[in-house]
Simulated scan of single mutants.
Amino acid sequence: MTDTVAPKTSEKAQLLLVTGMSGAGRSTALRALEDIGFEAVDNLPLSLLPRLAAYETKSGQAGRPLAVGVDVRSREFSAGAIGRELERARKLARYGVSILFIDCGEETLIGRFKETRRPHPLSPDRRVADGIRLERRLTEGIRDMADQVIDTSTLTVWQFREKVKALYAVESDHAMSVSVTSFSYRKGVPRDADLVFDVRFLKNPHYVAELRDFTGLDPKVADYIRGDEIFEAFFGRLTGLLSLTLPRYAEEGKSHLSIAVGCTGGKHRSVFVAEELSKWVAKRGGYRAHSFHREQGPEAKS
């Protein structure tokens, strides 16, 4: 992943409620948040959220962001309770209060529970699938009220941690965060994408022997794709569309916009276009831009 803007620790504290499906990665998210300066607390009773907000406001100790993890094991857990306690916290706090919901597909969750040989917290004596479906019903309203949703179905642990850091590391201003993700259509469209663009019509470097083993981060691959006779016209129309829509998303109060760019294998065309689009967003000013390559590991280099 490439950060177009260097991460900085938040200058204005926030209270971030981290929740979601059991096994989706809440604990991993809390550890990633700790890495970027958050103080993390897991399984806090919901009724204590407003007290935390009130205490930090009165004590003047609101300089460090706080991440609070809750799930179906937490006391008083329900969509209604979370809504009520967050509303009380927002009235008492002098800083941002928001929700991060960690989601994951059922088949992936079943596989994770089988791998760890642990029962689902809602179905200790029944099938894991029964617990997942019950939890899905219980958390549906919470997902709907979340400020951010991250689906970990197709993410590695490293990719997930980097995505959390990209979302929350830079919070020193109110600029909208724009993440541009490359992906492979063979492995599915990112479920949390707001906008999806298909670039499989561009000439494919996969069929050029000397380019096949490189990614869209390599200058030779970049030159090949940029040399496609329709690339300039396509990219101009794409950025023209975003020139109109990005300000409107920001005006509507959206804090994060997720753009996904896909090709067949998620290695060449989508990676290059995602990088170019992220750079374009950053140059416009007023946004925090990040590129993220789902099918590439941390070792991917240009």
Rank of each mutant, 00 (worst) to 15 (best):
D147Q: 02
V180S: 08
L244I: 13
R226D: 14
G262D: 02
S302A: 15
E56L: 14
T116H: 07
R88K: 14
E106D: 08
L195D: 10
D218T: 04
F234N: 01
R84D: 12
D144V: 13
L155K: 08
D130P: 06
D198L: 03
L86H: 04
H256W: 09
R31W: 04
L202W: 06
G265F: 03
L138G: 05
S258D: 02
E210R: 15
E106Q: 07
T152N: 11
L241K: 15
K203Y: 07
D151K: 02
S47I: 13
Q148P: 12
R269H: 11
S291K: 15
A89P: 05
G285E: 02
S47K: 15
A209M: 11
Q61R: 15
V196D: 01
R112W: 02
G266R: 03
Q159L: 10
C104G: 04
P121M: 12
H256N: 06
V178A: 08
F113V: 01
D125E: 09
L109R: 00
K91E: 14
G23R: 01
V97K: 00
K8C: 12
R26W: 04
I82F: 04
K8Y: 12
T28L: 05
S182A: 12
H120A: 01
L30T: 01
L66Q: 09
Y249I: 01
A79F: 10
D125M: 08
I225V: 11
T108K: 13
D125H: 08
R248S: 09
F113E: 00
E115W: 13
H174M: 14
R161I: 06
T57L: 13
T239H: 01
P121S: 12
R112K: 08
N43R: 06
K163V: 03
R186S: 15
R284M: 07
V97G: 00
L242A: 11
S10E: 05
F292P: 06
K301H: 14
L167G: 12
K279P: 09
Y185F: 12
G69I: 00
L66I: 14
A79S: 15
M145C: 11
H206P: 14
V5T: 07
L33T: 02
G60K: 07
R143C: 11
V149M: 10
K187I: 05
R73E: 07
G265T: 04
A175M: 05
G285S: 03
S172M: 08
R226T: 12
R75C: 10
G96K: 15
A250C: 10
T152D: 08
P247L: 00
A89T: 06
G23N: 04
G240F: 15
A81Q: 05
L167I: 07
V157M: 06
G60I: 07
F231A: 05
E115P: 11
T19C: 09
I110G: 08
I142T: 04
K58W: 10
H174F: 14
K267A: 11
S27G: 10
L134N: 08
G111K: 07
G25L: 05
A81Y: 03
V199Y: 10
S182Q: 07
R212E: 09
L217P: 05
L44S: 02
E295F: 13
S270F: 02
L195R: 09
E39R: 14
L257M: 13
S27T: 10
Q159V: 03
A233R: 10
S270W: 02
S243K: 12
A53M: 05
G240Y: 14
E106W: 03
V97D: 01
A6W: 07
G216C: 11
A274V: 00
K163A: 09
A282M: 06
R88H: 10
G297Y: 04
